[in-house]
Simulated assay, not measured.
Amino acid sequence: MKGVSAHYGEARVLADVSLRVGEGEVVTLVGRNGAGKTTLLRCVMGLHRRMAGTVTVAGRDVSAAAPHHRARLGLGFVPDDRGIYASLNVEENLTLPPVKGSSAWPLSRIYDTFPVLADRRRAPGAKLSGGEQQMLALARVLRTGARVLLCDEPTEGLAPLIVQQIGEILLEAKKHGVGVLLVEQNLRFATQVADRHYLLAQGRIVETLANADVRRREHELLRYLGL
């Protein structure tokens, strides 16, 4: 994205934001609550229409494209509420979205990677735990063939073992060339999976940090984030 600004009513939430995510790269977006992180993901996906600036996917300008057109070009969104269809079972949630492109994970691979989903394939979405729902949300996007994942706080409120599994899945996707833009407050988790980090403050990118910078300044950043 380049020069992106976004508003809610008269309030400006993002101001001239530019960033990029490369193929097979995990990039985190770090900032206080209310800094505009979720709005930024929604702008990339086309879900927030009051924006100016440019969003480009694989060299193609999609700034005026509807969300479903962006999805067909390879963007996949995992929202913070996970977006699980409560009345559908796990397998129906996985097979409902259309599959685009040769990079789509087949159902057999999904179940090999997410064995808990194989065990729960007939369970309604509403009956899954928070960790199982997060696994399902990630698996569903990978099955569509998305080449860029937009993940909003995927580890929030989850047990350490589930957080570790989510990290392993993101690294597996990265290994196969998938790019990830990750909104994440857990700095230690972020440094385990990400290549670099953007610090968002008051709607602007104020720093780009390497993993070494985050580790060296962890206590400072945690105080800044209010954690």
Rank of each mutant, 00 (worst) to 15 (best):
M1N: 07
K2G: 15
G3N: 14
G9C: 09
G9Q: 11
E10L: 15
A11I: 15
R12L: 07
L14K: 13
D16Y: 14
S18M: 07
S18E: 04
E23N: 08
G24T: 05
E25A: 06
E25S: 03
V27D: 02
V27G: 06
T28N: 04
V30I: 12
G31M: 04
G31P: 02
G34W: 08
G34Y: 11
K37W: 05
T39Q: 02
L41C: 07
L41W: 11
R42K: 14
G46R: 02
G46Y: 06
L47N: 02
R49T: 15
M51H: 11
A52K: 15
V57K: 05
A58Q: 14
G59F: 00
G59V: 04
A64R: 11
A65K: 03
A65T: 09
H68R: 07
H69I: 11
R72P: 01
G74A: 09
L75A: 04
L75M: 12
G76Y: 01
G76F: 02
P79L: 12
D81S: 13
I84Q: 05
I84C: 01
N89S: 08
E91K: 05
N93I: 05
T95M: 15
P98M: 03
G101M: 08
G101V: 11
S102C: 11
S108E: 15
I110G: 00
F114Y: 05
F114N: 00
V116P: 02
V116M: 12
L117S: 08
R120W: 09
R122D: 14
P124Y: 15
G125S: 08
G125E: 05
S129F: 10
Q133M: 14
Q134Y: 12
Q134L: 07
M135D: 03
M135A: 14
A137F: 13
A137S: 08
L138F: 10
A139I: 13
T144W: 05
A146G: 01
R147N: 10
V148E: 04
V148S: 06
D152E: 04
D152S: 06
D152T: 00
D152V: 10
P154T: 06
T155L: 14
G157A: 06
L158S: 07
Q164I: 06
Q164G: 11
Q165P: 03
I166T: 07
I166R: 03
E168P: 00
L170H: 00
L171E: 10
A173N: 07
K174L: 14
K174F: 14
K174E: 13
K175T: 12
H176Y: 11
V180L: 08
L182V: 00
V183W: 03
A190R: 00
T191L: 07
V193N: 01
L200Y: 05
L200Q: 02
A201T: 07
Q202M: 11
G203C: 09
R204M: 05
I205L: 08
V206M: 06
T208W: 09
L209Y: 10
D213I: 02
V214Q: 07
R216S: 12
R216C: 01
L225Y: 01
G226F: 02
